[in-house]
């Protein structure tokens, strides 16, 4: 059966008629055309498909697109703003936390949800928040360090009352 849905992705409204069985991850990738969210398994184990939905990190392969009706979704494409890269993006780069980068989008989104709920995470908190994300390049030490550093940057810039954005933006693209 087909159904029409309205979803907000990265602040933009999407209206489509989709098959009931379409997974949210396939909606995001194939219908909305946002291919930054990946699929690494078919069993909900890998976390490559992680997005933030209504403020929470969610595996988009484990829900149907129709279940996201009315939801507000954030994907990796929405992480950077006009003013620059998100501190997580900057710090992943600075800490050599990206190898092949296939897991990166999912990990960034898990980290984003974590830092919003817990702005001062310990390394243990970070590890815990990432249990649903597999990095097969096994760059975990660098990833955890990058998230910790990003949390410090965000806190410091909040103290200074400034938007925590990276300078690297001009080099992008």
């Amino acid at each position: 059966m087909n159904r029409s849905i309205d979803i907000k992705i990265n602040g933009k409204n999407y209206s489509d008629v989709v098959e009931d069985r379409l997974l949210l991850v396939n909606y995001i990738r194939d219908v909305a055309g946002l291919t930054g969210t990946h699929m690494g398994c078919d069993t909900g184990h890998c976390g490559a498909c992680t997005i933030v939905m209504n403020g929470e990190a969610v595996k988009s392969c484990l829900i149907l697109a129709v279940q996201a009706e009315g939801a507000s979704v954030e994907t990796v494409e929405g992480l950077a703003s006009e003013t620059g890269l998100h501190p997580l993006q900057v710090s992943f780069r600075r800490n050599f936390a990206v190898q092949c980068g296939f897991c990166t989008a999912g990990i960034l989104m898990s980290a984003l949800a974590l830092l919003r709920n817990n702005p001062e995470p310990s390394p243990e908190d970070i590890s815990k928040a990432l249990t649903g994300n597999i990095c097969r390049c096994e760059g975990y030490p660098n990833i955890v360090k990058a998230i910790e550093e990003a949390s410090l940057v965000i806190r410091a810039s909040k103290d200074l009352g400034r938007e925590p954005r990276g300078k690297e933006n001009e080099k992008e693209g």
Partner: peptide
């Protein structure tokens, strides 16, 4: 020099193109 990777600019922003993309 441990120069930050150029690839990361697209890999952290979801702009990389893997085969399925």
């Amino acid at each position: 020099v441990a120069y930050p990777r150029l690839e990361d600019l697209r890999l952290t922003t979801g702009k990389a193109k893997f085969l399925d993309d």
